[in-house]
Computed example of a mutant assay.
Amino acid sequence: MTARLPRITLVSTGGTISAVGRDRLDLSRYGDTNRHRELCALLDEIPELAAVAEIHPEVRPALPSHGMGLADLLDLGRLVRRLTGEPNIAGVVVTYGTNTLEETAFFMDLVCPPGKPVVVTGAMRPASGLSADGPLNLLNAVRLAASPGARGRGVLVLLDDTIHAARDATKAATNRVAAFRGGEVGPLGFVESDGTVVFHHRLERWPAQGAFDPSSLTGLPRVDVVVSYLGADGAMVEASVRAGAAGIVSAGTGAGYPTPAERAALERAAEAGVVVCQASRVAAGRVTPRPEAVPHGFVTCGNLNPWKTRLLLALALTHSRDPARIQPLFDR
């Protein structure tokens, strides 16, 4: 008797991995064609999957990832959380466009309790392209989702044989196949050329991982990101407040420093009840609490980038608007 293969649900949402360009050398403007290969056609190109797992497709509308809205994100989060709760499913793989993959993977990490593996993958070259990377990425994502070592690690990102934690994964190049990085943490491990899954980091949890249940949420509060630059005034902060933002993420310079004019506007926003979270526009490093920020009730993001900070703050605001209760969710 042979052992039964693990059952992996494959959630397809579109993106470069299924995109079809004008010809095999259309590796950059393929999105203009608005053409995609059906999931069944993609799976037919990877017969090796049959030796790894029992695949059960879950097809979603094909959307560019930069066209996804918060309602789409909530819907996807609910779906993946529900799938991980089904007893006959060993893991979930989500194919997604790389433009906002880091944000969506992070959001799913916040709403899916760590347990069964959830792996997000995509491609940097379209399905029609010369040396398309999507087929191997998909095969390796299934290998990872079927691996016992992936259990309990939360949502993982897999591209170019490399495993990243959803919390740390970020797109660091526009078109390169090795576009994703794991920040200061680096990759958690790799899927080797023979299919072996190897982890180099121990399993580690953080407070916000799986902390939110999206099933009862009808929407998310508005949270805006205001990016600082030399000579920036408070106009963007004030516009955000007028637009009804419940929270503002300040992507400050250096270790989290907005300009003096932005700082004054952020303090006025906090006094008006808007929760302000201080982040940095710098690619690596922590934003640490400063004593002078405490009277104004600012939250600090730790080492999360502004885009992920926005999503965590939005979810946190569905529970509380007290900065003292929100801050522990950002602490690692």
Rank of each mutant, 00 (worst) to 15 (best):
33 T>K: 07
113 P>C: 09
57 P>C: 11
65 S>A: 09
18 S>Y: 06
42 L>N: 04
41 A>Q: 12
113 P>N: 09
151 R>Y: 12
150 A>Q: 01
129 G>H: 11
146 A>I: 06
133 D>C: 06
32 D>E: 15
32 D>W: 13
154 G>F: 13
59 V>R: 15
126 P>K: 07
125 R>F: 05
140 N>P: 00
108 M>W: 01
147 S>D: 06
109 D>F: 14
128 S>M: 13
111 V>C: 08
52 V>Q: 11
98 T>C: 03
21 G>M: 08
106 F>S: 02
82 R>N: 08
47 P>N: 12
102 E>F: 00
136 L>R: 15
65 S>P: 01
125 R>M: 03
35 R>D: 02
126 P>V: 11
41 A>V: 13
28 S>A: 08
124 M>A: 04
102 E>C: 00
90 A>M: 03
123 A>G: 14
114 P>I: 10
150 A>I: 05
156 L>E: 00
83 L>N: 07
29 R>E: 10
29 R>N: 13
46 I>W: 12
66 H>Q: 05
131 S>V: 10
135 P>M: 08
89 I>C: 10
69 G>H: 07
68 M>Q: 05
64 P>T: 11
73 L>D: 00
142 V>G: 03
112 C>L: 08
121 T>V: 01
85 G>L: 12
103 E>S: 04
32 D>H: 11
106 F>L: 08
37 R>F: 05
71 A>H: 13
67 G>M: 05
153 R>T: 00
143 R>P: 00
25 L>T: 02
111 V>T: 14
144 L>I: 04
40 C>D: 12
67 G>Y: 06
75 D>M: 13
67 G>A: 12
70 L>M: 07
112 C>N: 11
60 R>V: 01
70 L>F: 07
46 I>V: 14
105 A>F: 11
75 D>H: 12
100 T>D: 00
115 G>I: 06
111 V>P: 00
114 P>W: 13
73 L>G: 04
88 N>L: 15
63 L>N: 06
106 F>T: 05
101 L>R: 04
121 T>F: 03
114 P>N: 09
113 P>V: 13
19 A>C: 04
137 N>A: 04
159 L>F: 04
153 R>K: 05
21 G>T: 10
145 A>K: 10
47 P>E: 13
82 R>S: 12
41 A>G: 07
80 V>P: 07
37 R>P: 00
41 A>S: 10
117 P>D: 00
115 G>E: 03
23 D>I: 11
72 D>H: 12
120 V>M: 07
21 G>P: 05
74 L>I: 11
29 R>T: 12
47 P>M: 14
23 D>H: 13
155 V>A: 00
28 S>C: 04
142 V>F: 09
20 V>Y: 03
26 D>L: 11
42 L>M: 11
68 M>L: 15
44 D>S: 08
81 R>L: 10
47 P>R: 15
24 R>E: 02
122 G>S: 01
99 N>V: 02
130 L>I: 09
32 D>S: 15
42 L>I: 05
105 A>V: 07
